[in-house]
């Protein structure tokens, strides 16, 4: 698998660290309540299809990326910098 880093170009998957669902970008307020925090930290949509997720180009520029990837086919259709997504 290769990922198109917006800064570095197409790189092998082994340069990247995977975190998980991009909902990690949407941190609830401290007082948002147990349900909101459960949703954020633990529960996942886990769709068998297109998935917006967070990767870091750890062995490259260090940028955190939002990658739109089909997790059934592994096709990647869009990669953006996480800092532009928030």
């Amino acid at each position: 698998m290769r990922i198109q880093c917006p800064i570095c170009g197409s790189r092998d998957r082994r340069e990247f660290y995977y975190k998980g669902d991009a909902l990690a970008l949407k941190r609830p307020a401290p007082d948002a309540g147990a349900e909101a925090w459960d949703d954020y930290v633990y529960l996942r949509d886990n769709p068998a299809g297109w998935h917006s997720e967070l990767w870091q180009h750890e062995a490259g520029c260090g940028a955190w990326l939002v990658v739109e990837r089909n997790i059934t086919s592994h096709e990647i259709r869009k990669v953006t910098l996480a800092e532009d997504a928030t």
Binding site: K19, R27, L54, Q56, E58, W64, L81, A82, E83, T86
Partner: peptide, 13 residues
């Protein structure tokens, strides 16, 4: 290090 990058790029850019 990765955590700090996450916090600054993803939560508080």
């Amino acid at each position: 290090m990765r955590h700090l990058e996450f916090v600054t790029q993803c939560l508080r850019p």
